[in-house]
Amino acid sequence: MNNKTILLVEDNQSDIALTKRAFKKANIANPLQVAEDGQEALDYLFAEGPFSQRDKNDLPTIVLLDLKLPIVDGLEVLKAIRGNILTKRLPVVVLTSSKEEMDLAISYDLGVNSYIRKPVDFTQFAEVIRQLGLYWLVLNEAPPQPL
């Protein structure tokens, strides 16, 4: 398990806290960076605005992206990530309440790596997070750094 940052893009405080709790229960200790809207997520990733001092080559190991976000919505964020040479290979997992087919289709069209629907039952949610961490942080080989 690497030690790299996980970027959680989520505006719901309850969900943020519950997600952190699930990570903790699953013994995932990677630092969790939370962006509460789409713009903040993009600023963080491209080291712009409030994050301009950040090294933009230091990318998170995975982005957990909610779709329904203020300012810039999740699909726009995904589009921007895939559209930038630095971030185009960055693993992005949509983690959302939506089961809309349109959302699923567009997400995959835009090149999402995985699409997970958050269950209401927290026990199940915690299990999803555990498996997600196991897979993306342990089993999955990270993409090479772009040139």
């Binding site: 719901n12 309850s14 969900d15 519950l18 709790r21 779709l67 329904k68 959302t96 309440s97 939506s98 089961k99 809309e100 958050k118 269950p119 209401v120 039952d121 927290f122 026990t123 949610f125």
Partner: peptide, 22 residues
């Protein structure tokens, strides 16, 4: 509406469930 039902109504439910379990 359907979109927001699936998003906005389910999110609090998850909260209620999650915090009850916590």
């Amino acid at each position: 509406f359907s979109y927001s039902v699936s998003h906005d109504l389910r999110a609090p439910l998850r909260g209620i469930d999650g915090w009850s379990l916590a």
